[in-house]
Design a protein around this nucleic acid. Structure first.
Lengths: 227, 227
DNA sequence: TGCAAGCATTTTGTATACAGTATAAAAAAT
DNA sequence: ATTTTTTATACTGTATACAAAATGCTTGCA
């Protein structure tokens, strides 16, 4: 995301004291609250109330809301403030179509430009994910899964690509988060991931693109019931 | 963009008085200023000064800046305020790679789902553009050109796709705006557009995608000297 | 002359206060 | 009883005021 305020204090520090501005912190906080469902879609946000809950005044909270509005996580209704955005099934499907296209693009580029270390890092992430799968640790699995998808995009070394991918990913995160699929489907997803990593290691762009394609098409199948 | 505040006051009005919130107006205003070069890349934005220039207080201006930061047009440096973002040549190239992918996706979808009216509308836009070309009206040409690209994406009827496309497009707008190409290149661009529209009318997805591909690759060639 | 430290100025970050607008509830009229 | 009008309340929109931080300058000293 374009979001997170930068944190570049090059000098050697014991533990850089969070030099993020308050509104920046609120942004990440609210984003998490929306993704995790603390703030439900359609729910109206009362600035004074939420401000008190978070222990901040209205000003930085409002600034954070403007930021999230631009990200598309909340909607700004004139004179009525902010509402947590609700996505229709078509919205989610449309997002996944775009995400699919972006990841395929990223995959193709990654095959050409990724470093061996980068690919190895992804492989170990994958191994960790499989471990979580075997241990049936859904939440951990889910998190590593996200990291892998983000990681593939990162390998393409294209900042705007990573950014728009992250933008859309943050919106469907909530859906994926609640979408608890059955055992067979879960197994299928893991198998798909295995093929994706293999294609990446082989730097076989077309196979990778094809695998990502089917993986994300199936991904829609997996979540569409819960939307 | 997710930007523009909605304007849904269903009741019959003589001329709906801009019910857009002030920060919303400032957002569009600043965006234009950045695109048109009134605010130069790397330029620091002094809130009080700019606020006075625009005749608004700091609060809505700051909110607008947060919004634009999320869009990626300005950068927020903690304790040092906002700076108009400067894009490197690689940034622009990366953006155009993504834009190309997005437009190709949009084109393919559009061939399948666009209405005949929608396609006809695009054809007439194209004809208008050619007129501006022949009259050597660069600014008008440029504007209609943008509308055509946006229009193709709109035909795909995929809101998130249109949104991320608009997001990236707004960033390269400034570059394209200043990139005054020579006569031969300009002629080439018009010819490419003609083929694009023809492919769309024929609903030939693969040809359309290929034409968009070459058009945007050439687009990079056309602007890369000025970045 | 060069450098460093302290002070002053400027600018951002945050809180609060006030004004405008929408919503909801209650009262009045049909 | 239903609809309309009025009125009150609560919330958003904007401005201003205050606090904290950063930068630049001046002055003192080596």
């Amino acid at each position: 995301m374009a979001s997170d305020m930068i944190e570049t204090n090059g000098r050697r520090t014991v533990a850089t004291i969070s030099r993020q501005s308050l509104h920046g912190e609120i942004v990440t906080r609210l984003r998490d609250m929306i993704i995790e469902g603390d703030l439900q879609p359609g729910e109206r946000i009362y600035e004074t109330q939420l401000g008190e809950e978070l222990g901040v005044s209205r000003t930085p909270l409002r600034e954070a809301l403007k930021f999230l509005a631009s990200e598309g996580l909340v909607e700004l209704v004139p004179s009525r403030g902010a509402v947590v955005k609700r996505f229709s099934a078509k919205d989610v499907e449309d997002m996944l179509i775009v995400l699919r296209s972006l990841e395929m693009l990223a995959g193709r580029i990654a095959c050409a430009v990724a470093s061996e270390e980068g690919i190895a890092r992804l492989r170990s992430l994958h191994d960790a994910m499989v471990k979580h799968y075997k241990a049936a640790e859904r939440l951990e699995y889910y998190k590593v899964n996200q990291q892998i998808h983000t990681g593939i995009v990162a390998l393409a070394n294209n900042a705007p690509l990573a950014e728009v991918h992250g933008l859309l990913q943050s919106r469907v995160k909530r859906i994926r988060f609640i979408g608890h699929e059955g055992a067979e489907r879960w197994a299928g997803a893991v198998a798909e991931h295995e093929r994706i990593i293999a294609a990446l290691e082989a730097r076989d762009a077309e196979t990778l693109a094809r695998e990502l394609d089917t993986h994300l098409v199936n991904g829609w199948e997996r979540v569409k019931s819960v939307v």
